[in-house]
Amino acid sequence: MILANLYNKVLGFFRQTENEAVESSKDTACNRLRVVLMQDRTNLTPELMERMRGELVELLSKYVEMDKDALELNLEQDGDQVALMLSIPVIRAKDEDEIKEALEAAEAKESEETSEEDDTNEEESEEETEDSSEDHENDSEENSKETSEKEENNENSDKKSSSKKEEK
């Protein structure tokens, strides 16, 4: 009897280690917390993130042809710093003429719409959009044909600056 129990115990031990691939409640808690804290620290609600994503798609499509639905935009924590992670599957690099055309079209559109710019409520998200897109411009000029690229943007919101923004 005791031997059988021992056998079961040993078996059970190995099964436990196999099951560790399944996410534990602790991991769920950690992941949920990370996401929610990122939102708390940066004042970026899911709606604002969605808006930022939309604006990025619009801006970057001038330079590269990409899979718009697969563009991923996430806030991630790297030690003390908050990073904006942007993953863009590039389908095809645009040639010079196409880029010129897109830029001109955008400029024409802009001059038409100068009267109707949004209020400055979401300053922060706009700031970050600008920064990350600048970085990306360089990449696309190099005509990289990778299907996916990750990009990090550490300059903006580390913890301190975000908490100061909160104060305002």
């Binding site: 808690a29 949920r32 917390l33 929610v36 804290l37 708390d40 620290r41 913890k159 301190k160 975000s162 908490s163 100061k164 909160e166 104060e167």
Partner: peptide, 17 residues
Amino acid sequence: EMSAVRDADRIIGLLEA
């Protein structure tokens, strides 16, 4: 616990300011 950690994060933000 999640709620306590989240609140602690908020407090830390306020203390840093």
